[in-house]
Write a protein that binds this DNA or RNA. Sequence first.
DNA 1: TTGTACGCGTTATCAT
DNA 2: ATGATAACGCGTACAA
Lengths: 333, 333
Amino acid sequence: MTIKDVAKKANVSIATVSRILNNKPGYTKETEKKVLQVIQELGYHPNGIARGLINKRTHTIGILVPEISSMLISEFISGIEQVTHQHGSSVIVCHTESMGQKTRQYLQVLKEKQIDGIIFTSGVLKEDYYQLIKDTDIPMVLLATESYEFPVPYVKVNDHHAAYSATEYLINKGHRKIGMISGDKEDMIAGQPRINGFMQAMQAHELPVKDEWVVSENGFSFKDGVNGFSKLIHQLDDITAVFAASDEIALGVLSAAYKMNIKVPDQLSVIGYDNLKIAEMSIPPLTSIAQPLVEMGKKATEMVFEMMDKKRGVESRIFPHEIVERQSVRELK
Amino acid sequence: MTIKDVAKKANVSIATVSRILNNKPGYTKETEKKVLQVIQELGYHPNGIARGLINKRTHTIGILVPEISSMLISEFISGIEQVTHQHGSSVIVCHTESMGQKTRQYLQVLKEKQIDGIIFTSGVLKEDYYQLIKDTDIPMVLLATESYEFPVPYVKVNDHHAAYSATEYLINKGHRKIGMISGDKEDMIAGQPRINGFMQAMQAHELPVKDEWVVSENGFSFKDGVNGFSKLIHQLDDITAVFAASDEIALGVLSAAYKMNIKVPDQLSVIGYDNLKIAEMSIPPLTSIAQPLVEMGKKATEMVFEMMDKKRGVESRIFPHEIVERQSVRELK
DNA sequence: TTGTACGCGTTATCAT
DNA sequence: ATGATAACGCGTACAA
């Protein structure tokens, strides 16, 4: 079932059918009607592969994510899918699991599939990743991450600043003994900057901070939160508030505190980071630093399409964060 | 940069290069070495589009989901991606938002993209959807749903049975006044069967049930849970336990109860459905009916590949559910 | 072992 | 307005 069959049955050339399909000028109303008729009868639909071969456009973009079942990523994907679909394209989701091997493999596959663009999400853009696509003309943008070495546009929030705000918020509520549970301390994107933001806010307000007051776990998960809090409570036993580097960590803190019979927010205030949907589902509802996740996904995608069309670079974008107040932080007097 | 360039530079024909690329027999170690060398130098990689055109295999499968940022779906996708990647393919995620329009559109796109298979996830397979792909030879399998009208293989759990088990579990714990918060009552897949399972378990144990004791909200979300519980508490004020048709609903119940100062599990027991990751993150940790979500996603994908290879149908599969006991249900004596 | 030439389903460029 | 035909990049009979 190809364009040929349609042409034959309609007694026209394939060229004419093609013109009608792509409504390029060059046919009468009548032939159009006839051809459309035949197409209907035959249930014909064009072969996108053949089209892609000649147009050099596959109407597909690839997105690389470290963890597919993370709620953070889900929100990103949601935004990405929205504008992608809007542009008549679809998205291939590549689950890298933060593994170099798998990432390179997927990058290779995306190249071979001739996809139109790439969105690289929350993870560091390693040198070899970059090499793998820099010689192609596939536009790429970074989402929730950035590269200090390579000229790849990105969209993210200012982690340092956001962490500073979160900490300052706690301070303004009267807290003095504040601990932090960060993710991976070595992480230059989501680890370091948030820790620094925390530290600087404390110092700016002339509050004491010891290194042990920020405990760094391996990741940003629930488990890291419960483990982290157990450690933290030992280092800083008269703690009144904790800044968690992610909402999942914060939920871990909530759980751990619950088990230790520490009441939140009465005895302990907790602020999270990301403002995922679970933030409003927790008990008590979690105060959190909100990133406009869906918006960010949308913007990153728009940038990719812009680079495709205009064939040129595009400016990175820092999104604003905001504090969403719920009930996990109380004012100290 | 095509196979031609490689052939030219290596002083061989494109046929030879092609053979080497697909390691079909017919060349010496030496020419292989030389060609591989050139490929390396040129940084050549084959064009998957051209390949797809001739092989009729795009190594891409499409998955349709109603809600991309649902944790349930995330787990499915996770399983699907796993085996898809294992088979050297990638997955296009189609977010239908349960909209007929968008679903049909995506189905059309998938056909044009000549994808190798389709996984249709949790939603009803409407007649026109089916028509859209039944004449193609694209294998399709249903995940977490099933069709009573069309011969499409599926993988799911037995919702009726699972709901029965959940209810019976509550009964065995000594509960008598049990309410249920279901999702959409009209939903023939995830609505009706669970309600029926609940009803039958109650009747089998000769317990009273009134219609008002099962309140049906529009969906399976957190919000539905909090709204549902408010209604339920009015209909059945000496209630001791509730069966929630999803974990999100259950979390809504937990939140609502918390606000009303009802202690879980002391004054109220709650059992959820799905056993999402949030089930262990809630306060108290949620007892829930577990579906092996990732496994189900994997199985569905395997079925698709099997249908692709063997060109024939495949048997549907009902997965077992199990009760994961945590701390949201207490024994009544 | 290796090369030539055709075909995959389209679109684009010429003619007519 | 329409048609013939050359690309697009690759795989593969068939020939050599």
